[in-house]
């Protein structure tokens, strides 16, 4: 079963999809992703200023999908054999989810350094959705 997201909803936060734009709290300096709502550090509301992180960080959790992927990812699973999904703590501090690319996802572990690249996420209704993924830092 897929989690359908319409194109109008998808484009609402392209900066975060493409470049992990974070919210920096003007009260405490903490970072929140996505950059909306209350600050995850100090719960202040209306204090988030968008900032663009370097896109590098460390894997804090990971899993591998080898079958049963949502239908929009079926083609990628066919082509790649497995899809790695990670939670990454960016060097700025915020935690962001992402897929892995350019690696064997089974060889990526907690603590590994990764960097973001923009790739095709999936194609649906003829429209290619692009977004940031992670690959191991060289």
């Amino acid at each position: 079963m897929g989690a359908y997201l319409s194109v109008p909803s998808w484009v609402r936060n392209l900066d975060s999809r493409y470049r992990f734009v974070l919210g920096e709290c003007t009260e405490c300096g903490g970072y929140t992703f996505p950059p909306e709502g209350a600050c995850v550090e100090c719960n202040a509301v209306g204090t988030l200023e968008p900032v663009e992180p370097a896109g590098t960080g460390e894997v804090v959790a990971q899993t591998v999908i080898e079958s049963g992927a949502p239908p929009e990812f079926a083609a990628l699973l066919d082509a790649q054999g497995a899809i790695g999904v990670v939670l990454v703590e960016l060097d700025e501090g915020a935690r962001v989810p992402g897929m892995l690319t350019d690696c064997d996802p089974r060889e990526v572990a907690r603590g590994d350094r990764v960097e973001s690249v923009v790739r095709r996420i999936y194609e649906q209704e003829g429209i290619v959705r692009y977004g940031a993924k992670f690959r191991p830092e060289p």
């Binding site: 083609a75 990628l76 790649q80 690319t101 923009v118 095709r120 692009y130 993924k133």
Partner: peptide, 13 residues
């Protein structure tokens, strides 16, 4: 190209 690459992603990189 990887399965998730195309002219757009390579151009961006």
């Amino acid at each position: 190209p990887a399965a998730d690459e195309d002219a757009v992603t390579m151009a961006v990189a």
